[in-house]
Nucleic acid binder design. Structure first.
Lengths: 152, 152
DNA sequence: TATTGTTATACTCTATAACTATA
DNA sequence: TATAGTTATAGAGTATAACAATA
């Protein structure tokens, strides 16, 4: 729609298309976007404290709690007191949590394939490689944060 | 951070980097992100009604009003009753509005150049072309909507 | 009766500040 | 005193519904 399509415009449109595609997938597994971000972070690294998890995901520590409560209630994560420092609570995936995470990733990978199916194989390789490179070039400060906004 | 970087993760990081870079530019001209989206829409097409502008930008019509009030107050747009149908108000850029829009676009183009400077010229061409193609392949439903979220 | 623009209300999400328990 | 986790309060942003003017 802009005469020269701006990066922000294009990225925004694309991101929201991805989110719109992902939300139903996550919902089928009883997850919202932040739940999935948390599970992803837990699947990537070793068991962290909630403070570390907050930093890793970009989710404010006070709001992270609600996600962890629900995830624990659903049996997807465990929260255990740290024997080293009993102020900490160590968060870790359960077997069920790993399974749900794996299924979501599989479905999301398929969704991505569909979204990118309009590109040639060569263009897709360059596109994905560029995304990874650009992301790597960003300052550390910005962390994850897919939102579940609704447009007016 | 994910083992296989997901599209949503990468797009989100990149979009927020763009937004973080753009907000100070817009702020220098007294604009917020929605103001800029509205000015952009007005710069692209002919003078629309507020309802059309709402549809074109994705901004809810009730929340669009506040933006239009401020933009008119700042002398960047005009709102005139439609002689054809006096329920409508026709919105249009003023000369001052066009100037501000042009300056913002120029600064944002420079920002984009910096953000993409890590790519080779060839990769950048493919990357931008792919973005445009992917955006064009999306369903009509989704319209613009850069947000000014703050991560926790 | 339907529609444009507007205002008002309720609701959600977010930011900030307290509180507790450990250290 | 400082920190991890938690809870509570205030504020911003959003959706929804109602309203006045015009068709």
């Amino acid at each position: 729609m802009p005469e020269r399509p701006e990066l922000g415009f294009l990225l925004n449109r694309l991101l929201h298309a991805v989110i719109d595609g992902e939300l139903p997938i996550l919902q089928r597994h009883g997850l919202n976007m932040w739940d999935y971000v948390v599970l992803t972070a837990l699947g990537d690294g070793a068991a962290p404290t909630q403070a570390e998890l907050s930093a890793a995901t970009g989710r404010d520590k006070t709001r992270l709690i609600g996600n962890l409560d629900r995830l624990a209630e659903a049996g997807l994560i465990r929260r255990e007191p740290d024997p080293q420092d009993r102020r900490n609570r160590i968060v870790a995936l359960t077997g069920k949590g790993s399974t749900v995470l794996r299924k979501c990733r599989r479905d999301i990978a398929q969704l991505e394939g569909e979204l990118l199916s309009g590109l040639t194989a060569s263009d897709r390789r360059v596109f994905e490689r560029s995304l990874v490179r650009l992301e790597a070039s960003l300052p550390e400060s910005r962390r994850s944060l897919p939102t579940s906004r609704r447009s007016g």
